[in-house]
Simulated scan of single mutants.
Amino acid sequence: MNTRQLRTLLAVREHGSVHAAAAALFLSPSAVSQQLRSLATACGFSVVERDGRGIRLTARGLEMAALGDELIRRWDSTVDSLRRTAAEPVERPARAVRLGALPSAYRTWLFPVVHRLRTRGRLAFELFETAPHEAYEEVEAGRLDLAVVVRPPGPRATSLTSHPLYRDPFVLVVPRALGGTAPSLRGLADAGWVLPGRETHCHEVIVRHCARLGFRPRAAARSNDWQAMQEMALLLGAVAVVPASCLAPRDGLAAVELSPAERFEWRIELTTRASATAMPWFTAFDREVSRLSFEDRLSARSAA
């Protein structure tokens, strides 16, 4: 049993369905179901049961949720207290700052930041690739010190603080062989699409946007690597939308800025526990990041 399972149970108690709990936790429905099954196995009894189209907690599940409330409150309070009273261990070079980030952030600007902080600031780092739905949970649980993530909808945990970094607009990539100087997303509704994996936040962002435009894209290929998606689009004569920061110009593939009516983006932010913002390592990291001009970098990449 772990705090992740208990937080999942509490979300189901509050929202009354797997899908609503998944949205609140920034997880996939299958991940929520897996957490509930793991908790039931650890406890030796069912913690949820069907209730019409939704689910509800069993009598024992409600007792477990009440215990979970108390345990998580004590966990968060104790971790915050221990961190506040620590004698600034992060100032020692041996202390590794645990940093999570999107692959696109690492590739475009974050590696140089880490390099400068390691050589000039004598900070040590442990680097992790994190999916958007994982990052907040990992920071809140203390497994990461900070993360560069996609800002999700809705409120975050009160123990976290976030700093906006930049907006990353999505760009349509189309094989030039398809013709047309300014194709629209709606006009490509019947085309083959290269999409991210079904269980990813990236897939959800793209599919939801297409649904608002009145269609569901048909997958001709799938990849969780934005650059591989562009290679697949070129190879298969398919189309894709990718963040502007991940564009990789290729012969035979056109990058098209979306019209205002079809434009969408995601917002990239830096998140950490509120108690960490007073730490010297965070001050050094935030200062280094603030020197970068993200909008200029994205505009240059989009125009390439």
Rank of each mutant, 00 (worst) to 15 (best):
Y136E: 02
T271V: 12
H209F: 09
V47P: 00
S159G: 08
P169S: 14
L9M: 12
G187K: 04
G68W: 02
A303C: 10
N2R: 06
L25R: 04
G154A: 05
R56W: 05
T200W: 01
E199F: 10
S38M: 03
A304L: 11
R198S: 13
D225C: 07
R122P: 07
G68P: 05
C210K: 01
E140R: 13
P260Y: 06
W266V: 10
E231Y: 03
E288M: 05
A101Y: 00
R291N: 11
L165P: 08
L146T: 09
H115P: 06
A177E: 13
V90M: 09
R7K: 06
E269A: 15
L102E: 04
R301H: 10
D168I: 02
R267L: 03
H163V: 14
A177K: 06
R167K: 03
A105Y: 00
G252E: 01
L123S: 12
D51C: 07
P217V: 00
D225G: 03
S81V: 06
E49M: 11
A105I: 04
V289I: 15
P260A: 02
A31R: 15
S81N: 10
L67D: 13
R301K: 08
R287H: 13
S46T: 08
E295D: 12
F294M: 12
S77V: 11
R120P: 01
Q34N: 09
R13W: 07
R37M: 05
A182L: 15
R287I: 02
T119R: 15
P89C: 07
P155A: 07
S293D: 15
P152N: 03
L195I: 04
T271D: 00
R53Y: 05
A65S: 08
L36A: 05
L146P: 01
V194G: 06
R216Q: 07
R291Y: 07
P152K: 00
D69I: 10
L102W: 05
E129K: 10
V205M: 14
E126F: 01
F125P: 05
P132D: 05
G179E: 12
G252H: 03
L25I: 10
W281F: 12
L67Y: 03
V239G: 04
S184K: 07
A42V: 04
E70V: 08
P243I: 07
V150A: 10
R95D: 04
A177Y: 11
E265G: 08
V289C: 14
R186Q: 15
L144Y: 03
T161D: 00
Q34R: 13
R297E: 09
C43R: 05
P243T: 10
P169D: 08
